[in-house]
Design a protein around this nucleic acid. Structure first.
Length: 895
RNA sequence: GGGCGAAUAGCUCAGCUGGGAGAGCAUCGGCCUUACAAGCCGAGGGUCACAGGUUCGAGCCCUGUUUCGCCCACCA
């Protein structure tokens, strides 16, 4: 026995309850040691690859990650078992602003700022933070059972990826698709950086709308303008009105005296202005408002910045210089009021832009920023989706995707922080030449001077994540990994980053690889609490994946997430469901425990018996047919990303077919004296259990691996077993039909027992009246089994007979179940029930008779549908007949 | 304002191209029946939001209405 084998658990008697903690840790360690997650790149095999949506390196696992990674692992394990070359690339994102904030907070506790350290030392500090704490989320993913190829773990700031980032930046720059421009950006005065439009969150906020009188320069009157940010008036360089607004035509030559300043500003005429809003006059602050910026461009207005990058009023603000913007606002309002310029103040609710990282109110302001011209890149992405080279699941996202791509604006990629990929651009001190190169230049190529200063800005974090599908595979080098695994198979992510990330990966992948980055995109729902509320710490409704794992086990938690993952927009997470699936895992465990008791001494080769189903007993043929149908369903659901169906098909089969019926049914065989019966039962039991374990392994890797290791024979990991395939030889419609009758009879007899309140241990007598010869033979053949399942003695099966007055009675198909029950019948209750049944049947019959009497139905509906309706009619009539008989019989007992 | 989604059992939700309304939980009744009381056996419960339309046939397709949710753009 070699070392790895000795580490595997010895065979042992399974305990009554599944102890997930120990099992999970033991197997995960084993898988890591054996490197069973490592990607293979064998010739001639299909490839299946996924790149993980890299979580923020500062992140801790939340339920969204848990869902996301469970679904990925499900597919990865499925394809690995199918024998594909399978790769799941893990990694983390450097998350520029978030990470910088974390480290800055750390510094603050030492009463330091990043400026005390300086750029270089600060970045060193971030790296050492990453060394120390950056592995948190990775370890948490491992607890989830993620089967990533960990040797290939990447980080968006690591050497290879940084190289890719530079390469992309330089190429785009040289193609003219990156430019530097003066532009109005969303500025976060706290983070000191520009934010992309989609990094700004708009919250409805209660504020004030200030109406200010702007006097005409000739003193002949005034116009009232309104603003929510009065401090920006110091930067006003015009008042705009609609070109056709009669009220203001005369102001063309006059101008406005801007209150609180010495300046006179022009009136401009612009279509953007809504005549109906307020007075129809708009103050224009090109340096501090996006729309005003556009107006300023159209009318060539000066852009007067009155605030610095900390949100403090600057020298242009005159006597307000040095005041914080909100302090200044108060002061301005006060001064306006004192000087009679304030018309009125109204309460006003409006959307205020806030930084998505720190919730500071964003200030629109102009500055020099770097941009990507996205139009040509976006067009390629749209085309790829239109041509079906990328498929979106669920397909409701196409429309949204297209409309967003149509309206896309240039992407501001520079950020004024320190942590990130520094922009590879240098300016020559002597000639002003801008140099953009992959390798740091030593001298200016134009004038030869050696004094070059590098751009201080870093790139938006999404810039590097946009390259993730190919940068992680070695690009710009032409690696075997790229050849094998690019394009990746599917991207699984949350829909809230469809545009932040997914669209940009498509643009970059198409541009640099000339190929889509993934064939399919599966956008899963957002996880909310059970009432549909967003989970948040302040609401206190957060469900922590790690707590779930501790309490219910990873497999139960994974199963829950899978069961919830229907193709929709939201998932309402209910902890009770996790507990329910924990019971299910335990049920599986106990089924295995039962199997183990009977399979202890068998040879694994006994399963050969199951390969010739024709020779097997009915229940065996039935369960093989059922597992086969389940295999078909599960595979189809996996291939179509219908994850909830993967879970429900497995659940239904294991609990309600395999455990409830099959295991009960074969107990007689397993305890029988007949060796053939015993062997058949053992063979099929082992066969089906093996199939079940393999089928469920992708969802519940731990428990399936543990049970697998305890089955007869020497077994290596289930992870690399072949995933179950449909076996036509197992299909058996006849066995299913027969079993349906037998199960129906058993259920019917049980119902009679229960309703008559016969004690479960008491035996009943039963007579089955069955006019059909074949069914009679079937019932006779399995009479022993049926008797055992319903605890009956004196079991008779007859072609015809009369029902005694005081008997329990039921009808299953065309078989009448009769149980003599002297004095045990609840006559009134039964009559009520019969009446209710009659009501339903009458209604149904009327519907069907109407349908069948309709010529159009007969002519238009498919023949099989018509035939079905006819059968139904006959059945209902038969039932009504029996219903009438029973009613008559019971009515007699009444008196 | 534009777009999207949801409305099905008491609760949470499935129901994929139109052809007999389902699950889990909860509720009620009964059981330690030799894998599992973390279990077993059984029962009750729905005008599929509303109103029209298409169709032989609608939970499903079309139109409108109501309620709720989300996203985008925001009128200063």
């Amino acid at each position: 026995m070699n070392e790895t084998e000795s580490k595997r658990p010895e065979k042992y008697d399974l305990p009554k309850a599944y102890e997930f903690n120990e099992v999970e840790q033991r197997w995960y360690t084993h898988w890591l040691e054996e490197k069973t997650f490592s990607a293979q790149m064998e010739e001639g095999k299909d490839s299946f690859s996924i790149v993980i949506p890299p979580p923020n390196v500062t992140g801790v696992l939340h339920i969204g990650h848990a869902l996301n990674n469970t679904l990925q692992d499900l597919l990865v394990r499925y394809h690995r078992m199918k024998g594909d070359n399978t790769l799941w690339v893990p990694g983390t994102d450097h998350a520029g602003i978030a990470t910088q904030n974390v480290v800055e907070r750390q510094l603050a506790s030492e009463k330091l700022t990043r400026h005390d350290l300086g750029r270089e030392k600060f970045i060193e500090r971030v790296w050492s933070w990453r060394e120390e704490k950056g592995g948190t989320i990775i370890n948490q993913l491992k607890r989830m059972g993620a089967s990533c190829d960990w040797d290939r773990e990447r980080f968006t700031m690591d050497e290879g990826l940084s190289k890719a980032v530079r390469e992309v930046f330089v190429r785009l720059y040289k193609e003219g698709l990156i430019y530097k421009g003066d532009y109005i950006v969303n500025w976060c005065p706290r983070c000191h950086t520009a934010l992309a439009d989609d990094e700004v969150e708009h919250d409805p906020t209660d504020g004030k709308l200030y109406h200010i009188r702007y006097p005409y320069a000739d003193g002949s009157g005034y116009v009232v303008v309104a603003t929510t940010r009065p401090e920006t008036m110091l930067g006003d360089t015009a008042v705009a009105v609609h070109p056709e607004d009669e009220r203001y035509q005369h102001l063309k030559e006059i101008g406005i005296n801007l209150p609180l300043t010495e300046r006179t500003i022009p009136v401009v005429f612009d279509h953007h202005v809504q005549r109906e809003f307020g007075t129809g006059a708009l103050k224009v602050t090109p340096a501090h408002d996006r729309d005003d910026y556009e107006i300023g461009l159209r009318h060539d207005l000066p852009r007067l910045k009155v605030m610095d990058d900390k949100g403090v009023m600057n020298a242009e603000a005159g006597k307000y210089a040095g005041l914080d913007r909100f302090v200044c606002r108060k002061q301005i309002v006060k001064d306006l009021e004192e000087q009679g310029f304030l018309d009125k103040i109204e309460d006003y609710q409006h959307a205020v832009g806030k930084c998505y990282r720190c919730a500071t109110v964003v200030e629109p302001t102009t500055s020099k920023q770097w941009f990507v011209s996205v139009r040509p890149l976006a067009d390629k992405a749209v085309a790829a989706v239109q041509e079906g080279r990328v498929n979106l699941y669920p397909n409701t996202w196409y429309r949204t995707f297209y409309s967003w791509m149509e309206n896309i604006r240039d992407w501001c990629i520079s950020r004024q922080i320190w942590w990130g990929h520094r922009i590879p651009a240098w300016t020559c001190a002597s000639c002003g030449e801008v140099i953009v190169e992959v390798d740091d230049p030593a001298t200016c190529p134009k004038c030869g001077a050696s004094e070059l200063t590098q751009e201080t800005d870093v790139l938006d974090t999404w810039f590097s994540s946009a390259l993730w599908p190919f940068s992680t595979l070695g690009w710009p080098d032409q690696t075997k990994e790229l050849a094998t695994f690019y394009p990746t198979s599917v991207l699984i992510t949350s829909f809230d980053i469809l545009f932040f990330w997914v669209a940009r990966m498509m643009m970059m992948g198409l541009h640099f690889m000339d190929e889509v980055p993934f064939h399919d995109v599966y956008l899963h729902a957002l996880v909310r609490d059970k009432h549909g509320k967003k989970m948040s710490k302040s609401t206190g409704n957060v469900i922590d994946p790690l707590v779930m794992i501790e309490q219910y086990g990873t497999d139960a938690f994974r199963f829950t997430l899978t069961a919830f993952a229907a193709q929709g927009r939201e998932i309402r997470m209910d902890e009770e469901r996790v507990d329910g699936y924990r019971r299910f895992i335990n049920k599986l465990w106990n089924a295995a425990r039962f199997a183990q008791m009977h399979l202890k001494d068998v040879e694994p080769s006994i399963v050969e018996l199951a390969k010739e189903p024709a020779k097997l007993g009915l229940a065996h043929r039935w369960i093989l047919s059922r597992i086969n149908a389940t295999i078909k369903d599960v595979r189809a659901a996996l291939d179509g990303y219908n994850f909830n169906e993967v879970a429900s098909a497995s659940y239904q089969f294991v609990w309600h077919e395999f455990c409830d019926w099959y295991l009960e049914w074969i107990k007689a065989d397993l305890f029988s004296d007949d060796a053939t019966a015993r062997d058949q039962a053992k063979a099929v039991l082992l066969t089906v259990l093996e199939q079940v374990l393999k089928l469920m392994h992708p969802i519940t890797p731990f428990v399936t691996e543990e049970i697998w290791s305890q089955l007869p024979g020497t077994r290596s990991t289930i992870m690399l077993e072949a995933f179950p395939e449909e076996n036509a030889a197992w299909n058996d419609a006849e066995a299913e039909e027969s079993m349906n009758l037998l199960m129906g009879v058993i259920s019917g007899l049980r119902t009679i027992r229960t309703e008559a309140e016969v004690h479960p241990s008491a035996k009943i007598e039963a007579m089955l009246i069955c006019p059909d010869q074949a069914k009679r033979n079937l019932l006779t053949e399995f009479a022993g089994g049926v008797q055992a399942m319903v605890r009956a003695s004196n079991f008779s099966i007859v072609a015809e007979g009369t029902v005694p007055d005081d008997a329990g009675h039921a009808l299953v198909q065309d078989v009448e179940l009769v149980v003599p029950l002297k004095g045990l019948i609840d006559v009134e209750g039964e009559l009520e029930k019969l009446a209710r049944e009659k009501g339903k049947l009458d209604k149904e019959l009327a519907r069907i008779v109407g349908k069948l009497g309709n010529e159009k139905f007969i002519n238009n509906a498919p023949a099989e549908v018509v035939a079905k309706e006819r059968d139904k009619e006959a059945e209902i009539r038969a039932r009504l007949g029996k219903n009438a008989e029973s009613t008559e019989r019971l009515s007699k007992l009444r008196c």
